[in-house]
Amino acid sequence: MEPLVKIDHLSKQYGKFAALSDINIELPKGKIIGLLGPNGSGKTTIIKVLTGLLKEYTGEVLIDGEAPSPHTKSMVSYLPERTYLSDWMQVKDAVNMFQDFYQDFDKEKALELLRRMGIDPKQKIKTLSKGMYEKVQLVLVMSRKAKLYILDEPISGVDPAARDLILDTILDNYDKDSTILLSTHLIADVERMFDNVIFLKEGKVILEGDVDTIRQEHGESIDQLFREVFRC
């Protein structure tokens, strides 16, 4: 089966610093893939290339056979690590904006998820707490029926109870034919979700494959393996 994402010889330099060095990855359809590595390993750079936020790179990146473009953006649902909604908005403005721009956005689903999380659609974005803000962005992203979900560190900086809620929201709401690329350095909490993992270190892929196979080959969990590989 054709992979949904094909990355060929992707490299990115920031001055003398190589953020990515000759990355070759394929992301199959219908899988949840963990993009794992410590801070500065290149996870966000790969994500920025896939989402069209970074245009200067060498190599080839294809999403469903196309280089990143407005069309691929309509297939990708992206949750950045940062907050990206405007201060002037109320939560409902953000929902309406997503409905305007993304044909695959389900407004009813978004409103239902907000209700379940106890978020008032009339609340102003700038009055939301950090945790609430992250939940709003997650609701927006997971209310789309996208081909590819890219979730950049969705559970970093949130308490354990909120982590479970976030992970459950992801698992309950993503389209089963879609692919999820989830970057994190907090493996223990999310290991159960992954079908495949990619280990990144200093801009290079050092391990890649099916989670069960890797566990069998190394005789330890992904979290244990991660701690071993990235031990300082």
Binding site: P70, K73, S74, P80
Partner: peptide
């Protein structure tokens, strides 16, 4: 702000040219 600040993460991931 809306293109090169944090909001740029939304603006440049919208399916628009």
């Amino acid at each position: 702000k809306s293109l090169y600040g944090q909001e740029g993460y939304l603006t440049f991931t919208l399916p628009v040219t």
